[in-house]
Structures are given as C-alpha cells and as structure tokens.
C-alpha cells in the first residue's frame, strides 16, 4: 500500500499526476476506494477551501486541486459502481439563464462529485425547462442554481417558480449560491438552502438529501 498521505498532498497542491499514480497503486494493492475518498481527498479539498477563504489560494489553485481530485475519482468510480454503491444523491447543477459565469459553479460541481453525488452539469445560461427535464427524466433530487449577477438573480426565482408549475418542486430540494446571493434572498425565493462556498455546498447537499426522496 502506498503512503496515502501523498494523495492528500497531491490534491492539496493540485498535482494530478501524483494523485492518479498514488490512486492506481492503492487500487492495485487492495486499498478501499471509499477510504481514499473520505479520509484523504475530502479532507484535502476542505483544506483547499480554507486556504481559499483566507486568500492563500486563488481560483487557479482551486481549479488544479479539483482537477487532481477528479483524476483520482475517475479511477475509483468504476470500483464503487461495481460494488453496487449508490450515489449519495443526484444533483442537477447550472448557472441560471442569462448568466455566463461558471467558475464557482464548476467548483461546486467537482466537490459534490468528490462528496459522492452524481452530478449532471448543464453549464451556464440554463433555462428553467432544462432543470425541469432533468428532474422528470433523469431523476435528479437536488437542483443547484448559481448566479453571479444581481441582474440574473431573479432568474433563480423564476426557475423555482417553474419547478412548482411543473409540479416537481415537492420532489426535490433546491440550493442556491454565487457571490451576490445571500441567505436572506434564498429564503425569500423559497430555496431550501444556500451556502457561500463549495465545501459548505457539499455539507448542505448532504443535509438536504437526508430529507429528500432518494433517486
């Protein structure tokens, strides 16, 4: 078994090649995929989030750590699936209509994957109908909306209203985020949860799935 601390360090420093190599070695020597994720990668990403909060890390560092984590996850996911492990939940995520900012949304999507969620990422400028379709056809049980412009924040409300209209609002949980979004705004538009960073978004999604219908 390789020194798994190296996996932690590789994710923290955004070294994808090392993350992948250590993961391969761990798999070859019978390492437990779940343990690799929960004991090494998730704590590393939490630390990355902390360094971002205190402005030691910036967006490029975040992206590189997420990349390293994803590289390792790609190897582990088939193993988890073969064991019949179910995703914690199925999230459909996107930046709302009219808004093209996607850096924060992408990070949230990566961390949710790291946290064991199946993630359907629709990208940016996503119309309400697409979210509705994902709930109806793909069985998503969490809808995650991002907005970076105060101009497009009303589209979050419109999307939630459209989910209600389509009769699927009761089946799912809605979480919202993005720099200008606030807890108060989230409550006002009837979202189930808000968080201001990607690590907290995973905790939030876990809490929400605990009370949501399973996929």
């Amino acid at each position: 078994m390789p020194d798994l601390q190296k996996l932690y360090d590789a994710v923290l420093s955004g070294d994808r090649n090392t993350a992948v190599a250590v993961t391969q070695e761990a798999i070859a020597t019978g390492g437990d995929p779940l343990e690799l994720i929960s004991k090494y990668m998730v704590p590393a990403m939490d630390e990355v989030g902390r360094l971002f909060e205190c402005e030691e890390y910036f967006v490029p560092e975040l992206l590189l750590s997420a990349r390293a984590m994803k590289g390792s996850l790609e190897l582990l996911r088939p193993l988890l699936a073969a064991r019949g492990a179910q995703p914690v939940g199925r999230v459909v995520i996107g930046t709302v209509k009219g808004d093209l900012h996607d850096i924060g949304k992408n990070l949230v999507a990566s961390l949710l994957e790291g946290g064991g969620f199946e993630v359907i990422d629709f990208g940016a400028d996503v119309a309400p109908e697409k979210f509705i379709a994902a709930v109806q056809e793909k069985g998503a049980n969490i809808v995650a909306l991002s907005a970076l412009l105060t101009v497009t924040m009303p589209a979050m409300r419109t999307t939630i209203d459209a989910l209600k209209q389509a009769g699927v609002r009761e089946r799912i949980k809605v979480m919202v985020g993005g720099a200008p979004v606030t807890e108060q705004f989230a409550a006002e538009i009837g979202a189930d949860g808000y968080s201001d960073n990607a690590s907290a978004a995973v905790t939030l999604a876990r809490r929400l799935t605990a009370t949501a219908v399973r996929p």
Binding site: G14, R16, N17, V59, P60, L63, L64, R67, L100, D102, I103, N106, G123, A124, D125
Partner: peptide
C-alpha cells in the same frame, strides 16, 4: 511559467473557455 506545462495548459483552457460561450 507559474504552474508548469501540464497544469498551465489546463488552466489556460479552463479560463478562456468563456470566450466560446459568448
């Protein structure tokens, strides 16, 4: 220069992708 060949290319690609979204 800052992040090395592999990561540098990756970051550049990620951070210029918006250009094709507009």
């Amino acid at each position: 220069e800052k992040y090395g060949e592999d990561n540098g290319r990756y970051l550049h690609e990620e951070l210029t992708r918006y250009r094709s979204a507009y």
